[in-house]
């Protein structure tokens, strides 16, 4: 199977590297941070482009408004803070000043999901994809590893319109090629299979590939598709795969409500009703702990995905 691990890196560092390169490539790119420069890996950009870097302090609402304002004058603002403070805390600011106003702001959100770890549920958002998906005009992207996050960061600068870019804190397998192509809204087929499709996003893509390996040993061919763009959803990629496999597992580090699973289910219920199993956090808040232990505890790992796949296969008519 392809996609061997190159190294272990955090996706937020992919964002930081992508932003630094954007600084050189596009003089209109500016960055704002709410007192988390190091956590968002924006230090290098801040040092190299101090005139285009705005430290706003712990004032996320003001940051979102300022970002909207900076677009009036032709700039492309990238805001940085944790995912919880990038969404729930500033939802109305994003809704009115950015999404409704069609502002070209890139909301870059780190420490998403339970892999934020020890800080616990106050900081672990599992609702952010849903919140952002609900906003008309918002593009929602959740890349899977360092290399893909870097490419996604560069791609969103070229896209005109508001974008929510979600990434995470811990070091995770980096397995996409360094020069991997990133096209917003175009899903990536990672493995080919005929028995079940696993639609995975973000930190769950690598565990989905591991699950496919487990299933392969049992003679089950799983097709793993990396849905890095949750909105707009690549409907063709979803339907074409499901036509072949006739059953689905969705996998995401998010609430079972409002995330990738809902998007896939809504599409398939209209176009191609199909048994679906969900790997997601089942309507509870997170808790403190090591990221890998939390992922296992909430069932967000390869063995759980493989089990869900077998269940989905059994449900086929």
């Amino acid at each position: 199977m392809k996609f061997e691990i190159i190294d272990y890196k955090d996706t937020r560092s992919g964002f930081g590297e992508g932003l630094l390169e954007l600084g050189a490539e596009n003089p209109k790119v500016v960055a704002l941070i709410a007192d988390l420069t190091g956590s968002l890996k924006m230090d290098a950009f801040a040092k190299k482009y101090p005139d285009r870097f705005f430290q706003v302090g712990i004032a996320e609402a003001n940051m979102m408004g300022m970002a909207a304002g900076l677009t009036i004058g032709g700039y492309i603002p990238f805001t940085g803070t944790f995912a919880n403070f990038s969404t729930a805390r500033v939802y109305d600011q994003i809704r009115q000043s950015i999404a409704y106003s069609r502002k070209n702001v890139k909301i870059c959100a780190s420490h998403a999901g339970i892999t934020l770890g020890e800080d616990g549920a106050t900081h672990q958002t599992l609702e952010d994809i849903g919140l952002m998906k609900l906003l008309p005009r918002m593009t929602v992207i959740n890349p899977c590893d360092f290399n893909q996050t870097k490419q996604a960061t560069k791609a969103i600068a070229k896209h005109k319109g508001p974008v929510y870019l979600r990434f995470g804190r811990p070091k995770v397998p980096n397995f996409c090629p360094p020069d991997c192509e990133f096209t917003i809204g175009k899903a990536i087929q990672m493995t080919e299979g005929k028995d079940v499709t696993i639609f995975a996003t973000g930190h769950l893509v690598y565990p989905a590939l591991e699950a496919a390996r487990i299933l392969e040993k049992e003679g089950i061919q799983a097709e793993v598709i990396n849905i890095h763009t949750i909105k707009p959803l690549d409907a063709d990629a979803v339907i074409n795969s499901v036509k072949k496999t006739s059953c689905v597992v969705t996998a995401e580090e998010h609430s079972i409500y409002g995330g990738l699973g809902d998007s896939i289910a809504q599409l398939l219920s209209r176009e191609l009703p199909t048994p679906i199993e969900y790997i997601a956090v089942n309507d509870v808040f997170g808790q403190s702990g090591k990221p890998d232990k939390l992922m296992k505890h909430y069932g967000l790992d390869a063995p759980h995905i493989a089990e869900a796949a077998k269940k989905a296969i059994q449900r086929k008519a």
Partner: peptide, 20 residues
């Protein structure tokens, strides 16, 4: 140039414009 009405947001927007 921007939607307003949900209160409290315009000053932040104006600061962003001023910085631009």
């Amino acid at each position: 140039r921007i939607a307003t009405g949900s209160l409290g947001q315009g000053l932040s927007v104006s600061i962003g414009i001023a910085q631009a």
